[in-house]
Design a protein around this nucleic acid. Structure first.
Lengths: 246, 246
DNA sequence: CGTTTCAATATGTATATACATAATCGCTAT
DNA sequence: ATAGCGATTATGTATATACATATTGAAACG
């Protein structure tokens, strides 16, 4: 059947993954708003030409991930975004994206090695004036931009980062694999998207965004400062000021 | 069969939940150290007297949660704790615990309403000298203490908290359900357990612990300050300074 | 008219079965 | 001895089936 063929092209491979992926995409894109009733298992069974167990596996995982709510006799419904709990789940973006059943893609937008400016030193809490590496990256969930990353790496602390292009691997995972860390500080807040962020995330300027800034130290040395920006309408990363969770 | 009966008594209800719960308990308690090979599916099938699909469901979920790693032909193995990613997953403790397949339990240790001391004002970044509510709680995963919570609530900002006993509901969920928040600040670090924490978490004094402190503001007003302390040997909340994740 | 009961329905869990896939072990042939 | 090959093994995915359970809606009844 054609659906299965397209699944093999795009999805994670298995059919239930493909179903999961299709549905999360609909929810995250807003096509299916909160409260919307998802097709019944027997309908999806017909649509994907598979058994109910396969559909059930996909829907159960969606329920477990908090994207949908299942009610006996009534069906399955798109949940309203959870706020507080969700906000702090953002960390390893690849894992977060893949947990939603969406294909993850990473793209490096810019890379610049330079002597640290005053601003750089303020962001990194650097005392000396060594070189830094400035990076700008995008993380995708399926077709949609998921997070914008703006990062400074202290090249005095992480010399080998100066030789890395970060074209195929995101700086987060790269650093985790190499640099011991002893402390991290986070700041989480909401902003209105400026033009640059709006372009990057494919949203309207002024739209609410969630910003997570993280500074990491390793044995008293500042290692990196990173600022992740997420569009507020992405499910797990909501900049709702009034938490809706019960 | 007797195993099924005991499952009905303790576990979440379904058999695969029970299997999942049993195995996570073994891993989190340290009985099965990282690298340990857990029984093959067909062995668990015999042990629990159920089909392979049921065992498979439990093991797949454990793999997805990152507790174990599955290798074809070789078996399933307890994974080393992941560090970075895991550290930031801690937030809604109930959800975290239940994701591991363990029964969650909450216990309030102490509750004290008082005029804010100088220390309270520093912690909350309070300017005025209004009343605060000080709470001390414990969160359990199965039989084991999972997290120790020490919290201050600004009763000027959240008047109704003064009437709540917090015997049956943890302050976190309670606040999320009532108080709009606009900003949160986190600090994550490792400490050695003092006597008090060691007693609470049932670990040795001096053992490494992960501490997460969070301050929350709502429209410029400090709402609450909370300090979670986790034993480092709990899997998802590891105070490893040298991230082992690849 | 209100309440109770019952059947229909969608999800929740479990089974036996089947075949695919990847990794390892051991045998064989060079 | 060793490189290659095939058999074995454990997991990965999917199917058809069965029964449990919760909830809804409608029919039956007081």
């Amino acid at each position: 059947m054609s659906l299965i063929e397209t699944a093999a092209v795009e999805g994670g491979g298995s059919l239930h993954q493909r179903i999961l992926s299709d549905i999360s995409e609909k929810i995250l894109s807003g096509a299916w708003a909160p409260g919307h009733r998802i097709p019944f298992e027997h309908e999806l069974t017909a649509e994907y030409n598979c058994s109910r167990m396969t559909v059930n596996k996909a829907l159960s995982q969606l329920a477990k991930a908090g994207l949908i709510e299942r009610r006996r006799r009534s069906g399955s419904f798109v949940r309203r975004p959870q706020s507080q709990a969700a906000v702090l789940e953002i960390h390893d973006i690849r894992i977060e994206v893949e947990a939603l059943g969406l294909p993850y893609r990473y793209e490096r937008l810019a890379r610049l090695k330079r002597r640290s400016s005053a601003e750089d030193r303020a962001l990194l809490e650097l005392t000396g004036a060594g070189p830094v590496l400035a990076l700008e990256c995008l993380h995708f969930a399926g077709q949609r931009p998921f997070a914008h990353e703006q990062r400074l790496i202290n090249l005095t602390a992480v010399v080998e980062a100066g030789e890395e292009e970060f074209l195929d691997i995101a700086p987060g995972p790269w650093l985790i694999g190499r640099v011991p860390w002893s402390e991290a500080e986070h700041r989480i807040r909401a902003i209105a998207a400026d033009q640059h962020i709006a372009d990057a995330l494919d949203i309207e300027p002024g739209a609410p965004c969630l910003v997570v800034e993280r500074r990491t130290w390793s044995a008293e040395h500042p290692v990196t400062q990173v600022r992740f920006t997420y569009a507020a309408d992405s499910h797990t990363l909501v900049a709702r000021f009034r938490p809706s969770q019960g």
